[in-house]
């Protein structure tokens, strides 16, 4: 029967996943059948997609992409690969969101930030000591290449202003607002919604401190605007930003962006 094995159409005389592994690889190899890693033997049928992955061995580039894709639900991956997402601000939210979107295979990412990585970022942002002094755009692009080299990453080391919003973000499906200052959040949301009527904006407000993580949620507040956060807890003297709530909020934003790319508009 015809099966898709490591991304290639293959004619094999097998009835089960373990028989496929026996013919293609070793007993220790991992099997991913139609997006799910199986431990027990399963029957296979015509057109099933299998990845047989040898542990600890670096595969060739074309095999690597099919092995990475194997873990994504098949029809979902195609849509995400076509997705174009712009991330404005690469701090605690933006850096973590960019990495999540890279891991799920969003095809095109625009990363916008004017700043460099500094020591006070390491408490919550997705950077390392080795990135200190490097522009955040470059530090993040480097990491994404290491996580998923099949993603097209465009970087702009620039401050976002009312004047450049349209030029920077037109053509993208979603803008992820991930700034720190409330004035900047407001400026981007107002300008993008007014000047780019087809774009969706996923913004964040309220994730400082260590209140319950359950207070952080996603709300559709306007036709094209989603807000993630507890909507109340701003960063201020005595209430700093800490990795867990910032990452919970980043997770909400990334998941809403994923849903929007799959044309699901409900939160």
């Amino acid at each position: 029967m015809e099966l898709i094995i490591n991304g290639k159409k293959t004619e094999l005389n097998c009835n089960t996943a373990f028989e496929v592994r026996e013919q293609i690889g070793n007993l220790q190899d991992i099997i991913i059948l139609n997006g799910f890693q199986i431990e027990e033997n399963c029957k296979v049928k015509e057109k099933d997609s299998l990845a047989i992955i040898r542990k600890g061995v670096l595969p060739k580039r074309d095999e690597l992409e099919s092995m990475m894709m194997a873990r994504h639900t098949p029809n979902v991956h195609k849509k995400l690969k076509k997705g174009k997402v712009a991330i404005a601000g690469l701090g605690g939210l933006g850096s973590n969101i960019a990495v999540m979107l890279a891991r799920i295979g969003v095809g095109q990412l625009l990363l916008v930030d004017f700043d460099v990585v500094e020591p006070s970022n390491l408490n919550r942002q997705n950077y390392y000591i080795s990135h200190l002094g490097m522009p955040k755009t470059e530090a993040l692009k480097k990491q994404i290449t290491e996580i998923n080299p099949f993603i097209q990453v465009v970087v702009r080391k620039i401050k976002v202003t009312e004047e450049n919003v349209k030029e920077l973000f037109s053509g993208y499906d979603v803008i992820c607002e991930a700034f720190d200052k409330p004035e900047m959040k407001s400026m981007l949301v107002n300008t993008a919604l007014a000047e780019l009527p087809d774009i969706k904006v996923v913004s964040a407000s309220g994730m400082a401190g260590y209140d319950s993580g359950n207070l952080i949620r996603t709300v559709k507040v306007m036709k094209n605007l989603y807000i993630c956060g507890d909507l109340e807890n701003g960063a201020e003297v005595g209430r700093g930003l800490m990795a867990p709530r910032v990452q919970i909020c980043a997770g909400h934003q990334a998941n809403m962006i994923l849903r929007l790319l799959l044309k699901i508009e409900e939160v």
Partner: peptide, 10 residues
């Protein structure tokens, strides 16, 4: 009216 109030942090 829908009014969104942004607080700092990111």
């Amino acid at each position: 009216l829908e009014i969104v109030r942004f607080v700092g942090g990111g």
